[in-house]
């Protein structure tokens, strides 16, 4: 399952940070997910709960911010908001929209103690 693999990477990354920065408990994990990244926030939460037992992040709150997708409409020559990679342009209805941003999978910040 895709989200599980991502969660494992996330937990590894946080453990890496804890050694570098010297914290031993994590209260909040803040992620940013791009809407075009193909990653489901609920599935991420589910995997987080399944994987945290015994890990540094056990008991932490997972806060996910979903960032809307951004496209560039070649016809309007303008940046537009899209929800899927193949969305039509919300302004002109055309199909010449190139996804420009929105596949982020970022660990933004941690609240630690």
């Amino acid at each position: 399952m895709h989200e599980m693999a991502l969660m494992e990477s996330l937990v590894e990354l946080i453990e890496d940070e804890s050694r570098k920065r010297g914290f031993s408990r994590v209260r909040v994990v803040r992620l940013e997910l791009g809407a075009l990244g193909g990653v489901d926030a609920d599935a991420m939460r589910f995997c987080f709960d399944a994987i945290v037992k015994g890990a540094l992040v056990e008991g932490a709150l997972l806060d996910i911010v979903v960032k809307p997708g951004e496209g560039w409409c070649l016809d309007c020559a303008e940046a537009v908001v899209i929800h899927e990679r193949f969305d039509a342009c919300p302004r002109c209805g055309g199909n010449h929209v190139q996804a420009a941003a929105g596949d982020e999978l970022r660990l933004k910040e941690l609240e630690v103690e």
Binding site: L6, S9, L10, L13, E17, R21, F23, R27, L31, E104, L105, R106, L107, K108, E109, L110, E111, V112, E113
Partner: peptide, 10 residues
Amino acid sequence: ERIIRIERDI
């Protein structure tokens, strides 16, 4: 308690 910005790709 403190907040640390990480800004790393998962």
